[in-house]
């Protein structure tokens, strides 16, 4: 009755989930903390670091070899996938699928698809970390939220924690976009602690000055021990840029979605054990 969902996952994750079932105690539960942001906070007035742009680049030979291996494997997959059908799925399956699981948390591999950051990068004092939940099939975002703005004379507001998916890349680090034009609803399975979140969809833009454009909507959590199923139609999302709602609104370019993010910034200072989410999928509304 339903197509096997597991088959649509990349093989790596398939393997890891099988491994979990066999040896549940081996997989480490916490993902080592990754670099939160690309840029470090520079207090206004501080001198810029005197480094050439190529200095932080790692020119090691082994990294190059690994890169070649990875990119050619990706290229090969791209070429062969064409013969199977769109996005590597048979045409019939592609046409008939009603929902598609995009992110789910199964093992430590899945945490690598996410970047966690907080207002630390603008000089604030919030912290956020991501780890796998107890049963290895949920993820758990925790940290502290503090809305004290940095004392640099410029920043007026502060206090957010964010989790953002990574931009999918094709071979040779070319951008790839999610194509969700067959779907109309975002479907999340969430458990929160009562705080409101915001969902950010970042899409590819035409001009570079639109780079900060995002489509937002609210995610209200109920709190408590129960999981929530949240369905949000894409038509609900509104266009913002740098935190300001824009006057001229457009609908989301559903075939060019780059990342999805979740932001918490409700100005309620305190710990954030926001047993947040887990596993979501999107789905098309049925017509009846």
């Amino acid at each position: 009755m339903s197509l096997p969902k597991m088959a649509r996952l990349p093989s790596v994750r398939l393997l890891s989930s099988i491994q979990q079932q066999l040896l549940p105690s081996i997989a480490p539960l916490t993902e080592p903390r990754r670099a939160a942001s690309r840029y470090e906070y520079r207090r206004p007035g501080e001198p810029k670091k005197d480094k050439y742009p190529f200095q932080p680049v790692n020119f090691s030979f082994s990294k190059g070899l690994e890169g070649i291996k990875k990119h050619f494997a990706l290229l090969k997959k791209e070429v062969t996938d064409r013969w199977v059908g769109p996005e590597g799925k048979p045409l019939l399956e592609h046409m008939l699928e009603q929902n598609q699981v995009l992110w789910e948390f199964r093992g430590p591999e899945s945490l690598k698809q996410w970047t966690v950051s907080s207002d630390h990068e603008i000089g604030g004092q919030s912290e956020a970390h991501l780890k796998l939940g107890r049963n290895n099939d949920t993820c758990f975002l925790y940290g502290t939220l503090s809305s004290t703005p940095p004392r640099d004379g410029e920043t007026r507001y502060s206090g957010y924690c964010t989790m953002r998916s990574q931009q999918p890349l094709r071979s040779f680090d070319r951008k790839k976009h999610f194509d969700w034009s067959n779907f109309n609803t975002l479907h999340l399975r969430v458990r929160g602690d009562g705080r409101p979140w915001m969902i950010n969809l970042a899409t590819e833009t035409y001009f570079s000055h639109q780079g900060d454009d995002m489509y937002n909507y609210f995610l209200y959590t109920r709190g408590g021990p129960y999981w929530q199923e949240v369905k949000i139609p894409f038509s609900k999302f509104f266009l913002t840029s740098r935190g300001r709602i824009q006057d001229s609104q457009h609908c989301v370019w559903l075939d060019k979605v780059n990342t999805i993010g979740f932001t918490l910034g409700d100005k309620a200072d305190g710990p954030l054990p926001a047993g947040d989410r887990f596993h979501w999928r999107q789905q098309r509304l049925r017509s009846h």
């Binding site: 009603q98 099939d137 129960y226």
Partner: peptide, 27 residues
């Protein structure tokens, strides 16, 4: 028990009380 060659989308099996993390009995 329809055996159609289609994915009907919604999973009806998800029960909020019966979590995979163990059932909750009271709060």
């Amino acid at each position: 028990d329809l055996d159609l060659d289609r994915d009907f989308g919604d999973e009806q099996s998800f029960n909020v009380e019966d979590l995979d993390e163990g059932p909750v009995f009271a709060m």
